[in-house]
Nucleic acid binder design. Sequence first.
DNA 1: CTGAAAGCGCTAACAG
DNA 2: CTGTTAGCGCTTTCAG
Lengths: 336, 336
Amino acid sequence: MSVTIKDVAKKAGVGLGTVSRVLNNHPSVSEETRKKVLDAIKELDYNPNAIARSLKVKSTKSIGVMIPDISSAFYPDIVRGIEDIANEYKYNIILLNTDLKREKEKEALIMLKEKKADGILFISNTISEKLKRDFKKVNIPIVLIATKDDESEFYSVTIDNERAAYEATKYLIKLGHKRIAMIAGKKEDPNAGIPRINGYKRALEESGLKLDENIIFYGDYKFKSGYQNMLKVLKLKDKPTAIFSASDTMAVGAASCAMQHGFKVPDDFSIIGFDGVELAEYFYPPITTVKQPRYEMGAKGMEMLIKILQGEDVEREVQLDFELIERSSCKVKGES
Amino acid sequence: MSVTIKDVAKKAGVGLGTVSRVLNNHPSVSEETRKKVLDAIKELDYNPNAIARSLKVKSTKSIGVMIPDISSAFYPDIVRGIEDIANEYKYNIILLNTDLKREKEKEALIMLKEKKADGILFISNTISEKLKRDFKKVNIPIVLIATKDDESEFYSVTIDNERAAYEATKYLIKLGHKRIAMIAGKKEDPNAGIPRINGYKRALEESGLKLDENIIFYGDYKFKSGYQNMLKVLKLKDKPTAIFSASDTMAVGAASCAMQHGFKVPDDFSIIGFDGVELAEYFYPPITTVKQPRYEMGAKGMEMLIKILQGEDVEREVQLDFELIERSSCKVKGES
DNA sequence: CTGAAAGCGCTAACAG
DNA sequence: CTGTTAGCGCTTTCAG
């Protein structure tokens, strides 16, 4: 059916080893024969069979990308960064959504093993102990993006969440706010949860502001939980004047809630988000936020993976810079 | 290095053909030997090599997904729909971003040919003539999602854009609006452009409203162009009271612009968007829109492709239902 | 029901 | 510099 290296060899009147050589740019082929072969390839419209090649060379040039859910706003940019670099190095990406479910993660891993992915990029806020165990014995290079393991057993690319939260809170403090609530992530989340809460606390402490655990609300990073936590804020007798949210989507939920109840942002509440997703930018008022360099995180992770595959040395845990983007959802306290 | 079918055969004390048979659930294997083999597989922690299998059976169980840009809000849900169905049928997806660039499209297609993708899903608003030509001669089943070709040479899944735009406009008319502007897509876009403009025109016409070409503005579906076109609207002496935007993101841009200039939505302008992206839902006020069933479009496209691969008959062009979602960005004209 | 053998398309020695 | 050969790991006749 489709044309093979054999057909090309016949057409060009050479052995198939020779065809393979020109295909792989092996130096030891005379210009003359190279030309003959190239001509034959063109004429036959030949495309090498990457599957056959992979079987032989034991490298598929494809890498698995495991992600909770591509339709969640945080991930597409990361994937884009990955794909751009992958593409540059002639790798392909196999995308797998896991919803953070154990079963799906297991299946995904098996698929990647069977399809002989050269490497794996795991993107998520959290990684379960079980998955870590699986990863350790799978024998495929892996790099974690947007998460890391406490034991530093895996390569990872993240941002310094503690410091980012610290800076965000500090920003609010500099604006004159003294009573600052936090809509946090999950209490047990070792990446987007705990460190951001710690950063928030450290900023307050450092500025001599008293920490009030009653105005730390816990959510799941989604709109609804931002909205609902804001409802709680509005019920407070002693309302905060500013809010630090552990995700943009929750920040927007909180802002919507406030506005829907007749309050103004930033006049009544200064709100700062986290992540730097499009929603924050296009919301009205545009939401000030701490932007995670998502595209770069993906790109960097892919670069690291490629280096690992090439046997080069790479740093085990890299942290990229975040960026505080000032927009219109925060203002100096008291000013009107 | 890694354990192969041969190792399993040896361990189980059978021929490798037999191992292959139990792997593929071939009926003619005695329970006894099947058990022996299964045990050996477990003990050795054997995973079949899908690459080797693919080479032999000429099917890779992977399908290529060509998309302009995964980080553009319209696409992730589609991809999720695709992946869910793919996963269900044990297919994998290879994701390729093309930015609608000829060069990248060509490269992507070559990769997919070389990697022997079983099928291709092409997602986009538009498809170029050149790419169509390439697709025709590539000899891999293809289905188009969110776009189609005029000649109906390809399988496709879309919505009825003309009718959707018609309904959106009609909705505004029912609310009492008589002067309705449109922020349209690209004049030459055969899917998100032309048909939506036509639907808008038909609705006006049918209701006896005069069409004013001066209040049809052309954009590129993005925030900025919604914002800028709204600036033009605001300069009009005879301002419209309602606006139909060919994308949610432009609708949000327009709303932001209006609000920034002291106007109220929906009090001063009723705005209806198109697509049904998250941004429209979480914007304040939440934007009324015509939702394209993106997840379902992806899922349906993948289902069609699988059927085609199985040699089943499938409808050439399927249109899915859109849905007008009423939120808070439109109101009865004149009411306060 | 099962073992042996051929071969998918390609690469990498190995001779020449 | 180049042709030939031996597999990569698996499926699938073909005998038995």
